Computed example of a mutant assay.
Amino acid sequence: MVKVAAVQAAPVWMDAKGTLEKTLTIIEDAAGKGVQLVAFGEVWLPGYPFTIWLQAPMVAMDVVMKHRVNAITLDGPEMAAICEAARVHRIWVMMGFAERDRGSIYCSQALIDDRGEIVLSRRKLRPTHMERTVWGEGPATDIKVVDTPFGKVGGLCCWENIQPVNRQGMYQLGEQIHVACWPSFGMFKGMRQAYALSAEANMAESQSYALQGGCFVIAPNSVISEESLEAITMGNPDLRNIVFAGGGSAAIFGPDGYRLTDPIPDTEEGLAIAEIDLAMIEGAKVFADPAGHYFRPDVTRLVLEAFAGPAEERSVDQLEEAL
């Protein structure tokens, strides 16, 4: 048994120092509740640059620049302080952060153990849509899982969790506890044209990841605070009909797809906490092991090879010929 927590909270938006102070408080609070692994949302530090979805790229450049200057490095003082908090409170931490590497910024995750050591770091493989105006791409080798005292732990950011190939790679590595980091779902609330940017759609992805992989999924995400709305909308009152305070939807799912935590109101901060039993995975894998008895690598290889060429060469005819 291990007690885990998904953070639902608002960062001090585009403020690395302020968000760091809040991070340390949350870590202490989680440890005080007996949590052994606490997970933060996508680019929790210094916050998700929502403005890029609301304004043209050059109009949103002020926010992009604030995001850049508040990005942190793996070996910088902010990460050192988080590592020290993990060591002092004897807790594991999965941190979502904007990572600076020379002149580029990446959407990253780091897993810190209870001795204050970084045991995993990775970057989002493919930023989604407007995110490509802010972040670079991570390497293919950043499909990673690490051994911990409470099982094999890995993580993906936001719509990385949708990609079938990403999922299969994590399942093949024997992942038992997955951290699906998400931003707030405070944009386009109630709008049909929002496509799949809703809390319902993305929590369904977290749930299906757990069911498909026969693993536990911790799904932390952020909250948009009332105080940050003016900065996010850059003072444009019309955008208040597109982005709203709240958007929290943190949850934890079991390997049978069952939700293990009660919803926290979407405007409130808190920890979604569950005690998980890895023995449940054995029961799930009896029925479907996506990396073993329920996996057909020959079919996967056939499909990928048939559609691996340039777009104009991809066709159903190719797959039929291969078959």
Rank of each mutant, 00 (worst) to 15 (best):
R301L: 05
D113W: 03
D62Q: 13
E200M: 01
I162K: 06
S184Q: 04
P255W: 06
R87G: 07
M65E: 15
A245R: 07
P139Y: 05
A231N: 07
T25Q: 15
V217A: 01
M170A: 13
G174V: 08
E269T: 13
G214H: 03
R102N: 13
V4K: 10
A219V: 03
V63W: 00
P77Q: 11
K189C: 06
A284L: 11
Y258E: 15
L120D: 06
P149A: 12
A86T: 03
Q163C: 14
D277L: 05
S225W: 02
D238N: 14
F50C: 10
I177F: 04
F287H: 13
I143M: 09
A71F: 00
G76I: 07
P149Y: 04
G96M: 08
A288T: 10
G309V: 02
G270Y: 07
V165T: 14
L24T: 10
L111W: 08
P139N: 05
S228L: 05
M65H: 09
A81Y: 03
S225F: 01
G257F: 07
S222D: 15
R102F: 12
E269P: 01
S198V: 06
V43E: 11
R301G: 02
P127F: 09
C83H: 02
M79G: 09
D298I: 07
M95G: 00
L173P: 03
D238H: 04
I218S: 03
V69A: 02
G154S: 11
T300H: 11
M95P: 01
A284F: 09
I26L: 12
I177C: 07
G190A: 02
V2K: 04
E117G: 08
G283V: 09
P11Q: 08
W182T: 01
K33N: 14
A16N: 10
E21R: 13
R314K: 15
L74H: 05
A279W: 01
P57D: 05
L24K: 14
R87H: 11
T73I: 06
P265I: 06
V59S: 09
C107G: 12
V223G: 02
R192Y: 14
L229M: 15
Y294A: 15
M94R: 00
L120N: 02
D277P: 07
G18N: 06
E117D: 15
R132E: 15
E305A: 14
A274M: 04
R102C: 01
G151M: 02
V153M: 02
D256K: 07
